[in-house]
Structures are given as structure tokens and as C-alpha cells.
């Protein structure tokens, strides 16, 4: 793709990135950070591409490490975010039985 087209995508993405998180409560700062962290794990794709094109052993070796790290970031990121957000689901009725605390 042309450089200028990529630049367009880049600039527009900056605005979208600012826009989507402009109103977020403090409570969600940690899960949001963690979710964003998972999304940049998509760098895994880059690892697959360069390893797929590699011919020298050094390149292959480094590529395997890059894929490994990318996959940890991507999969681990989404899983740990999900675990945090599990806690935010609506309370089960069981929480009410302890004497009118709720």
C-alpha cells in the first residue's frame, strides 16, 4: 500500500483511539489497560509473517522467539482481562441471603 494511505490510516486511528476511551470510570482503568494490552498482542501476526519468510537459522530462531512472546501477550492478555471482568458480572441472589447487607 502507498505510504500516504498508511499514514491516513495511522492518523485516523489516533483519533478513534482517543475517542473510544474518552469517558471511562476509574473503576475500569485496570481492565481497560489490560484489554488494550491484549490487543497489541496482535503483533503475533508480524512474527508469523517474518518467520514464514525466513531462510537463515538466525532469522528463524529469532522469529520463533517473537511468535512465542507475541502469543503470550495476545492469549494471556485476553484471558487475564476476562478474569478481571468476571468479577463485574451482576450479583447472584446468593449474595442477598446474608441478612440484609445488600
Amino acid at each position: 500500500m502507498e505510504g500516504i494511505a498508511l499514514l491516513t490510516v495511522f492518523i485516523l486511528s489516533i483519533f478513534v483511539g482517543f475517542e473510544v476511551v474518552s469517558k471511562v470510570s476509574t473503576v475500569l482503568h485496570t481492565p481497560l489497560m489490560s484489554g488494550a494490552n491484549a490487543i497489541h498482542g496482535i503483533v503475533l501476526l508480524g512474527g508469523i509473517m517474518v518467520t514464514g519468510a525466513a531462510t537463515e537459522p538466525l532469522e528463524i530462531g529469532l522469529g520463533v522467539v517473537a511468535i512465542l512472546l507475541g502469543a503470550i501477550n495476545l492469549v494471556g492478555g485476553f484471558v487475564v482481562t476476562d478474569r478481571m471482568l468476571e468479577m463485574f458480572k451482576p450479583k447472584k441472589p446468593a449474595a442477598d441471603k446474608s441478612g440484609g447487607a445488600a
Binding site: V9, S13, I14, F15, V16, G17, V20, H40, I42
Partner: peptide
Amino acid sequence: LIIAGTLVGAS
């Protein structure tokens, strides 16, 4: 990669 990376960078 450009979109995902920039989204995370900006947000």
C-alpha cells in the same frame, strides 16, 4: 498492525 497498534498507543 498499524490500526491495532495506533489504537492502543492513543488510548
